[in-house]
Design a protein around this nucleic acid. Structure first.
Length: 340
DNA sequence: AACCTTTTCAACCGCCTACTA
DNA sequence: CTAGTAGGCGGTTGAAAAGGT
């Protein structure tokens, strides 16, 4: 199948956006919503392709974007999630509200990755170079664990996306039945808001929430956790979903009951043959200590490695490394975005 | 001040997937 | 089932800014 390029029309502008173009795009979306991105430029009077407009909007003009320096907490989140998910920037971005995947990707490539390399940590595996030379048995065990956890997180994200889609359908159905939205017991903000932004009279910020915004459920609405969201490879022999997986999916889709999951965390870890006490990978805390102290020169970094490798706290921190990752993916913020 | 190098990050490109007719 | 389209994603690029000599 031959695809026609998005910007096949001659004369379409490329490169940096001017303030006038930004204004046109903003004004149009504020009034009409983005609708079809492909047809938007013409309607908005822009000599740009739809893809370029969408990118400009999602990465820069969207009002719910936080700009500026990344906090230590955000850095930690990125590093930990990268250890778990790899270069899945959009997935990582779902755990960092108000940050775009592009911004996170850039920040990783320009700051975090270099910092890790400086410290002798492989930014891909998140292991210290020395560790990669260590016993192969332990290494493969940990690699398997990492892979397993990544698989589970993938499954969780997929389930989250499906939940969102189902809730969207529910919402539309609900809407068509002329039922009171408030009585339905859940709130739902999706791209539909963007296609019809003027139908509500909420405040502008609320209306201008990004298409990748939230789906939340109240306790009143029965959760629809279906096997659909769980890849078959993660089911057991009877094609059932492990209970821990269900808890995991539920926790990610609700703004409460995270504690329920924590109670099952160790069961979950056992189930994937992942004894928490054996996991000593990760150098996040070390890295962040360095970052917080503002010691970015190579000498101090190298020194920090030497000192901290013999530091009890270092091992304590690393013991908690994966636990904190699990906490991160478990307890997504209440307004955490979902993927559509 | 002028030039060169490095860093940063907005934007582009091409591929993939979901959806629809 | 197939083909076409739209939107999304991750890798990469290149202009501008910052830093160094």
């Amino acid at each position: 199948m031959v695809r026609s390029p998005c910007c096949d029309k001659a004369g379409l502008k490329k490169g940096p956006w001017t303030p006038e173009e930004d204004q046109k795009l903003l004004a149009y979306i504020e009034e009409h919503g983005h609708g079809s991105w492909r047809s938007l430029p013409e309607k908005a009077g822009l000599q740009r392709c739809g893809k370029s407009c969408r990118l400009r909007w999602t990465n820069y003009l969207r009002p719910d974007i936080k700009r500026g320096k990344f906090t230590v907490q955000e850095e930690q989140t990125i590093i930990q999630l990268h250890a778990l998910l790899g270069n899945r920037w959009s997935a990582i971005a779902t755990h960092l509200p108000k940050r775009t995947d592009n911004e996170i990707k850039n920040y990783w490539n320009t700051h975090l990755k270099k910092r890790l390399v400086k410290m002798g940590i492989d930014p891909v595996t998140h292991k210290h170079k020395n560790e990669t030379l260590s016993s192969s048995s332990g290494q493969s065990k940990n690699a398997a664990t990492l892979s397993h956890m990544a698989q589970w997180e993938s499954a969780r994200l997929e389930a989250e996306a499906r939940l969102a889609r189902e809730s969207k359908l529910l919402h539309l159905q609900h809407y068509q039945n002329n039922n009171n939205l408030n009585k339905s017991g859940f709130t739902h903000k999706t791209s539909t808001i963007w296609t019809k932004p003027n139908e509500g009279n909420g405040d502008q910020q609320q209306q201008l929430e990004s298409p990748t915004s939230t789906v939340t459920f109240s306790e009143n609405l029965p959760l629809m956790i279906t096997p659909l969201g769980i890849p078959t490879e993660n089911r057991n022999r009877n094609n059932e979903i492990p209970p821990a997986m269900i808890e995991f999916a539920v926790s990610s889709s609700t703004s409460s009951d995270v504690t329920l999951v924590k109670e099952h965390e160790h069961d979950w870890m056992r189930q994937i043959n992942c004894p928490t006490e054996e996991i000593e990978e990760g150098f996040t805390s070390l890295l962040l200590r360095d970052s917080t102290a503002g010691k970015n020169d190579a000498a101090s970094v190298a020194g920090a490695v030497v000192v901290n490798e013999s530091d009890y706290n270092y091992y304590e921190d690393n013991k908690n490394y994966w636990n904190s990752i699990l906490n991160l993916v478990d307890s997504s913020p209440s307004d955490s975005p979902t993927m559509f």
